Amino acid sequence: MDVLIIGFSSIVRRRVLPAVLTLPGVTKIHVASRCGDPREMIPEQRRGMLLADYETALKRCPPCLCYVSLPNSLHAVWAKKALDKGHHVVLDKPAVTRLEDALALADLSTERGLCLAEANVWPYHPLAEAFQQVIREDGSPPQAVVAVFTSPPLNPDNFRYQPEFGAGALLDRGPYAVSSGRFLFGQVPARIACDIVSSEAQGRVDISFSTTLSYPCGSSLLGFFSLGAVYRNSLSMIGGRYACEAERIFTPPADFRGTVVVQQGNARHNVETASGDTFAAFLQHVMDQIASNDQAKFAEILVQDATVLDEMRKVAQHCLPEHH
């Protein structure tokens, strides 16, 4: 299968393209980019068309797997164009900025028999599997999950600070909160609370937020996420007879060998995990499901997560003064 990448973004250069190059099932890699030259990153024998125009790329490339990596507000437009041309589509997270776009794209992908997936890839690392293994061995879900992903301010020109491009921490980090609950509880939250802790651009760009997602099983996820705080990247969970925690879980480098600290009763031990390229594992899974014509689940997950994130944004309370 060929892969067409639309947008030569930082995440494409650092993670997506290196991951695609490891996949034996990928024949040619095409790139449409309005800035940057991917030529040196792609071996000649796998180098397809390198184009500067997205529309031209979609027309000239035969139907394949199209990875869209553009500013958030442009995802839906180019996903629809790709689906209309018969391409399977993977979108950077957040897949969309509006719930209605998620619903429309999912309907279109179903109608065309195509894949529509959001690249929220952290559950594909062995760290995440270690969390689920603890739950399976105990036989009961965690009572509480605490997710934290904060980082210092980005370059002021970054699209995450530009409202017209789908700015803010809720869109950028919210998918981690939503997917953490889905991954560990296997349920949709019954109640959602979300508060904007700080914002910029006269309140139009949320910089930090906290959230509590309460699930039908009686458990809760508590999260704090920020584009303007000291770096933290952690997930922990507490059950009746166990607890565990891990660092760098949401964005582990491809060569990262993580540690999960597990407590069972009064005994503590470390579970050392293997490294794992989350993007490669996710994309391989996508390609395998397409090959078996079993790709519909990806669109279902995308819509489910978009629905929860939409509700978080609706209930968010802009109650604090602007922080810089």
Rank of each mutant, 00 (worst) to 15 (best):
M1H: 10
M1Q: 09
L4F: 00
F8I: 00
R15Q: 12
A19P: 14
V20E: 00
V26Q: 08
T27M: 08
V31G: 10
R34W: 03
C35V: 12
C35Y: 12
P38T: 10
M41D: 12
E44L: 10
E44D: 09
R47M: 02
G48M: 05
G48S: 05
L50C: 07
A52C: 14
Y54H: 09
T56Y: 06
C61R: 03
C64P: 07
C64E: 04
C66I: 02
Y67K: 02
S73A: 15
H75P: 07
A76H: 06
A76C: 06
A79F: 05
K81N: 11
K81Q: 13
H87R: 09
V89W: 09
V90S: 10
P94A: 05
V96K: 07
V96F: 03
T97G: 12
L99V: 01
D101E: 11
D101L: 05
D101G: 08
D101I: 05
D101W: 04
A102I: 08
D107E: 15
L108I: 06
L108K: 08
L108D: 00
S109W: 01
T110F: 09
T110R: 14
E111M: 09
C115P: 02
A119Q: 10
P123Q: 04
P123I: 03
Y124L: 03
L127G: 07
A128F: 06
A128H: 08
E129A: 15
E137Y: 03
Q143S: 12
A147F: 00
T150I: 01
S151M: 15
S151D: 15
P152V: 06
P152D: 07
P153M: 12
G168Y: 03
A169W: 00
L170Y: 00
L170M: 15
D172F: 13
D172G: 02
G174I: 01
Y176D: 13
A177P: 11
S179H: 14
S180Q: 03
L184W: 05
Q187W: 00
V188R: 14
P189I: 00
R191Q: 15
C194E: 00
I196R: 13
V197P: 04
S198C: 07
G203T: 02
R204P: 02
R204A: 12
S210Y: 00
T212D: 02
L213G: 02
Y215W: 11
S220V: 11
S220N: 14
L222A: 09
F225Q: 03
L227R: 06
Y231D: 10
R232H: 15
R232M: 09
R232I: 01
S236G: 11
I238H: 12
I238F: 13
T251I: 08
A254G: 03
D255V: 09
T259C: 13
V260M: 07
V262G: 04
V262E: 10
R268G: 03
H269W: 10
H269P: 04
V271M: 09
V271G: 04
E272L: 13
D277W: 02
T278L: 02
L283W: 04
Q284D: 12
Q284L: 08
Q284V: 01
I290Y: 02
A291S: 15
S292P: 01
Q295E: 13
Q295T: 03
K297I: 13
I301C: 10
L302F: 02
L302Q: 05
A306P: 11
T307D: 04
V308N: 11
L309M: 12
L309H: 09
E311R: 15
M312E: 06
R313A: 08
V315M: 01
A316Y: 05
C319H: 14
C319V: 13
L320K: 13
H323N: 11
H324L: 12
H324T: 14
